[in-house]
Write a protein that binds this DNA or RNA. Structure first.
Lengths: 150, 150
DNA sequence: ACTGATTATAAGATAAACTGATCATATACA
DNA sequence: TGTATATGATCAGTTTATCTTATAATCAGT
């Protein structure tokens, strides 16, 4: 019915919709295993902490591409859910380190499993190596533009 | 400079940040040629109309991945800027067709030129064929998941 | 010690999308 | 023909996510 999209003009749209697609698949898988009430921005924090260990709010914000003040709200929400805690950074008395609580540790496991599931769903469509190439290419573009956004 | 932030980002994060990167590059290029005040969601409408011709609000909404009620607001904004107009759809008296005004036509040209520029920036990093493959793969994933989101 | 940068944080504003409801018209079918 | 259901546009109000502005504490370099 509708025309074939012109890829050059549709790149922005493709990226936006793929972002949604991924998050929706993740939502679906998490819901299926009974994990609810944790949105995409919460998950971003969790996955970052899982990869990088206890972190400062400012680093979480940079990774999420938002302001530290905006990240505070997310952290407070996770804190009041008992999933993360803030403790003093011993190396800098201005800073606080955000880290998992034991409950948070349980959740990161679920989350990791779900991201793995979605990855596999994508791999089933594209094949593992094409998917890997695609993600590598995106990350290459991202790193190339890193200096651009400050 | 502080610690390295993102060496191995998760896929979700990569997609989210790439979406931002693209929009930011587009913003930069448009600003450089004096086009301002048109955000990403406005551009999405414009590019869709450029590809598909006069369209219904509901189709614009689907393409943007948002609700028709949300799309209304965007259309109203573009209308009050004199960039699009709504006219009766002759084939369905419930429906209205959203289309460019002459001013809108001028803007779509600028916009096309800028998307071309950003595409070229990316091509300079990855090479044309890798970039093309990457976008093709994303679109494949997107089409595969189309039935999933309704 | 002074200066400027960094970190956390609060408060309020703004943006962008949502839900729910209404109205008009179209389409299917008994 | 008439009635039920679906579609399309649209409004009002709400929620969510982020931004801007501002404050206070601490750090690092001169």
């Amino acid at each position: 019915m509708r025309k074939e999209p012109q890829l050059k003009q549709g790149l922005g749209q493709t990226l936006m919709l793929m972002t949604r697609d991924f998050q929706q698949r993740l939502d679906n898988d998490l819901s299926a295993r009974g994990v609810t009430g944790i949105g995409a921005r919460h998950r971003a924090v969790f996955l970052f902490l899982g990869r990088n260990g206890a972190s400062r709010a400012v680093d979480l914000a940079v990774a999420a591409g938002i302001r530290p003040q905006s990240m505070m709200k997310i952290v407070h929400e996770l804190e009041s859910l008992g999933l993360v805690e803030r403790r003093q950074d011993p190396s800098d008395s201005r800073a606080k380190l955000i880290d998992f609580t034991p409950q948070g540790h349980a959740l990161i496991d679920e989350l990791s499993r779900s991201t793995e599931t979605v990855w596999q769903q994508y791999a089933d469509i594209l094949g593992t190596s094409s998917l890997q190439d695609t993600v590598d290419n995106l990350n290459t573009l991202l790193r190339a533009g890193e200096t651009l956004h400050e």
